[in-house]
């Protein structure tokens, strides 16, 4: 049924190809740039950043540490040095502000693998929703933490596809390509959006981080929605859109507040009616007013936001 129409086709017609893919392009650019920054060292000897996503050092000064891996280390019984703690706090604050799952859609190298698998799945018309519960990832998150406690080691890191892929690209693959193939095949043939949206405990951790994040996607122009369903089709976390988009009658505000939203901005791209835009989480009242007030509000937010995008 999803083959009936091509999501985003209307948006391309009304907004042009570039605007209808703006956030997707920005996201791919960011993902590849971060990867390239890490690869500049081993490939060209330019050491702007050393290490990998688990812990790194920028320009030999600024430490960054994945708070999830450090939390597991803490639970396993190790008290880390100040460097790692500082690095983790920096990362923690950043994602608490911009949205935890910005890590998933803008940084994580596995996102490109699962997006490719999803694209192929849609292209070949493999239908059917995932039978997994979206809450499975939180169970897995709990299991990962319990494992750290019971084994006294960071057991999750022996199988974690996220760090394995990233480390593989920078330090040498070994058999890590098997993991890439496995994740790809899982999302391609077994479960729609299976890994990133249902299972990954890393994503679940970052979801929890971003529960109160400032940067959110807003559907301020939701009365413009013509029910084309394009945003639902492209969204990796479809359940997050409905309350904000269709909740006006129930008094739900236009901000997508779910922590599972990855702030990928694909819904903004594919909407021909410009219903969505990046904004903050405040002013989340439900309006029942005429259209022009929304548009006014929206334009204001939009300028705010585009300066934000350049920073990103």
């Amino acid at each position: 049924m999803k083959r009936l129409h091509n999501p985003g086709a209307d948006a391309i017609k009304t907004k042009g190809w570039l605007r209808a893919n703006k956030w997707l392009l920005a996201r791919r650019f960011t993902q590849l740039s971060i990867l390239l920054l890490f690869l500049l060292g081993p490939w060209f000897g330019i050491w702007l950043i050393k290490g990998n996503l688990n812990s790194s050092l920028i320009l030999n000064v600024l430490p960054l540490t994945d708070p999830f891996v450090l939390l597991q280390s803490l639970i396993s019984g190790h008290i880390p040095e100040a460097t790692a703690i500082t690095g983790a706090i920096i990362v923690l604050v950043f994602y608490m502000l911009v949205g935890g799952r910005v890590y998933c859609s803008w940084v994580c190298p596995v996102n490109m693998i699962t997006d490719a698998a999803h694209w192929l799945r849609e292209r070949l018309g493999i239908s059917g929703a995932s039978r997994l519960s979206r809450n499975t990832r939180y169970w897995l998150l709990g299991a990962v933490l319990v494992l750290a406690l019971s084994t006294g080691s960071i057991a999750w890191e022996t199988v974690n596809p996220v760090s394995m892929v990233h480390r593989g690209l920078i330090f040498g693959m070994g058999l890590a390509w098997v993991v890439i193939v496995a994740v790809f095949m899982f999302d391609f043939l077994v479960s729609r959006r299976g890994w990133c949206s249902h299972l990954c405990p890393v994503g679940a951790f970052y979801s929890a981080l971003g529960t109160h994040s400032l940067v959110r996607v807003r559907a301020d122009a939701r009365d413009q929605c013509d029910d084309c369903m394009d945003c639902f089709i492209v969204c990796p976390e479809q359940q997050v859109i409905r309350p904000a988009l269709k909740g006006a009658d129930k008094g739900i505000g236009p901000v997508i507040t779910s922590a599972n939203c990855t702030n990928c901005g694909r819904c903004i791209d594919v909407c021909a009616k410009d219903v969505f835009h990046f904004g903050n989480r405040f002013n989340n009242q439900s309006y029942n007013n005429p259209v022009h007030e929304h548009t006014h509000e929206r334009n204001k937010e939009h300028t705010n936001h585009s300066t934000g995008a350049e920073v990103l």
């Binding site: 050393k50 290490g51 688990n54 540490t65 994945d66 280390s73 190790h78 006294g152 080691s153 480390r167």
Partner: peptide
Amino acid sequence: DKFLGACVRCGLCVR
């Protein structure tokens, strides 16, 4: 046994 709980697998020592 302590090392496997303390090492975050970042590779900074290798670098």
